[in-house]
Design a protein around this nucleic acid. Structure first.
Lengths: 365, 365
DNA sequence: TTGAAAGCGCTAACAA
DNA sequence: TTGTTAGCGCTTTCAA
């Protein structure tokens, strides 16, 4: 009978004096391993493993015994050991450019929810819009054994893509849709999205249109939005207003300062397209504080539809981004890629222009 | 010479036909292990491990050879194997109640930054203000081998604390300071913080004060704020206004709806203390939309100092929470606990009342 | 349907 | 200062 209860460690190492199984009833409190469960349930560790992994080839009666033993001994599996043996960690990574404003909150929230439901854990890292930092983080996450990775946008360093390729882990680029660049995309076309804004503004009669874009270096979303405005304006025979088009960080303060300068230089356009809602709020607040009427004197548009912007007065006209759906779909795609080995497929979602109260025909056409 | 190059696996398993080292120059592309590095640098795997872990007892010349081999072969360490062998994962967990509003953004941002700098990775999970969910997540994070854990508040299920104790991992409760409850706290006293608000309002002459608190069940921060208001009001010989004190979710919408009801029932106090900034913004926007002047007809206070609230008009009087410092300190404490084995020590930080434009003496005293 | 045992890649105790 | 080697706890052939 005792032959059955020997675990392979003891069996393998023979009678080495220090590594025998701990004396039963000792004060030693190491947490129970599969070997302990195996002994208690009078099965092999292989069977314990099968029960743990819901293998169909375990007799009901045996499964019951094992599960009871697990419960009684308070067993819980050792992730690192599982990962080492199976080459899967049930862990998925995500790298966001920032956590500072609420832009990615909804998306990552949805992403985490799906992962948690699928018993995966999220490894989160922040690149601060820096591709080199990101490459380091990707490598670190890969070292930690992530089974898949979510990235934002398509602009990533060669090293990042190279690490991913060598590790042969599934990944997906979100918040963009430009599969021509050769990566799985779950997101929307920033270019198409911003074109709706331009059409709206031009349709309203605006001719002098400026833009407070995000910093475009290393940020394809910001770049696509800026280029999208240029392109669409050109289609209407227009161009971005000189002196009213600048790249700035995504901060209320930067936006306020920039608008203030434009006002002082008398360079204000009749409509200001903003790279995101944070910038738009800055423009809105600064304009209001200076007695510039919105939308009568200045139309303002945002991008993201942060939860707050429908409540400010005047309510912000903006582009609603499918953040939740991107998070959902990205997580689902990654989990599926891990479980079934299918490749991640690109998915185009739509961003919707939300007409609210910060846009109107120009007062002085 | 070849004796040196045998790795222990081959050595241990003798000449089993399938598990020999792969033929050099084969197409097989498994990523290199320490054994490969050891062979290439003509040292043992122990030395490779020492180099990897910056052990001081490796000769410079040897270290150089090993590092070169690592670079040449594109070696990178296998986290799960390291974790299994060393019982450390260089991974730290955090469980937040929500990611939906920006409340925790700054804190987790700072937390992640410190971890990343210390070469740790963040495992993030979201409890949705549910203690049972949280207990499951704690267990899952522990299974993943986290070296430490950050939690928000002191209200956690018995199972949560029990898991932590059994795993003997360091943890810290943030966003609260009440070490009497028996857990390491890095944060501030919500009670003391909100008392400043009460003093301010009472000092202004308010006597009819209401509160839109967060849901207090399972949320000690919300509870401390509500109780803190009661307690401090009592010290002034006052009580919370009946019919103007409700617990609601942290959402603009819920706050607006609740304020609307109070207005319709003519139950409006002269000052409304809000459980956080999201609620305060809801109150502010609803009041403004209904022609109730803030602060003349209604004083409003928030809690958190979200980045936006200094910009809305009137700018919100609120309590500034040391989110960044909590994130910093919590991460530092946890890393130190992991590296040096010292226990996490409680640290009290201060929350500051920020007087802005939504509070003034009551119009009808 | 079950068990035996060989590793997964690394660390660390011990020996040299 | 370096090497040998026994595990860490689990999964996964392979054999029975």
């Amino acid at each position: 009978m005792y032959a059955l209860t020997l675990n392979h460690r003891v069996g393998a190492s023979g009678m080495s004096s220090k590594s025998e199984s701990p004396p039963s009833g000792s004060a030693e409190r190491r947490s129970p391993t599969q070997a302990d469960i195996a002994r208690a349930a009078r099965v092999s560790t292989a069977t314990v493993s099968r029960v743990l992994n819901h293998s169909p080839l375990v007799r009901e009666e045996v499964r019951g015994r094992v599960e009871q033993a697990m419960a009684r001994l308070g067993y819980f599996p050792h992730g690192a050991a599982r990962a080492l043996a199976s080459n899967r960690s049930f862990t998925i990574g995500a790298i966001l450019p920032t956590l500072n404003n609420a832009i990615f909150a909804n998306g990552i929230n949805a992403f985490e929810a799906i992962l948690a439901r699928s018993r995966y854990t999220l490894l989160l890292a922040v690149s601060h819009y820096n591709a080199r930092t990101e490459a380091t983080l990707v490598r670190r996450l890969l070292e930690r054994g992530i089974d898949g990775l979510m990235l934002v946008g398509n602009d990533h360093s060669r090293k990042t893509y190279e690490s991913l390729r060598r590790a042969a882990k599934p990944y997906v680029n979100t918040w963009a849709f430009d599969p021509a660049r050769g990566h799985a995309n779950i997101g929307f076309s920033n270019r198409v999205a911003i074109a709706q804004v331009v059409d709206h503004l031009v349709g309203l009669g605006h001719r002098r249109i400026g833009m407070l874009a995000g910093i475009t270096a290393g940020n394809d979303r910001a770049r696509e939005r800026l280029e999208g405005v240029r392109e669409r304006l050109a289609a209407h025979g227009l161009a971005l207003a000189e002196g009213a088009t600048v790249e700035i960080p995504y901060s209320v303060r930067a936006a306020r300062r920039t608008l203030a300068e434009m006002i002082e230089q008398d360079a204000l356009p009749s409509a200001m397209v903003c790279g995101n809602d944070v910038i738009a709020l800055g423009v809105l607040f600064e304009a209001l504080d200076r007695g510039i009427r919105v939308p009568e004197d200045l139309s303002v548009t945002g991008f993201d539809d942060l939860p707050i912007v429908e409540h400010v007065r005047p309510a912000l006209t903006t582009v609603q981004v499918p953040a939740r759906r991107m998070g959902d779909a990205a997580a689902q795609a990654l989990v599926e890629a891990c479980e079934k080995g299918v490749p991640v497929r690109s998915l185009e979602l739509e961003a919707t222009l939300l007409l609210r109260a910060t846009t109107a025909p120009p007062a002085t056409p």
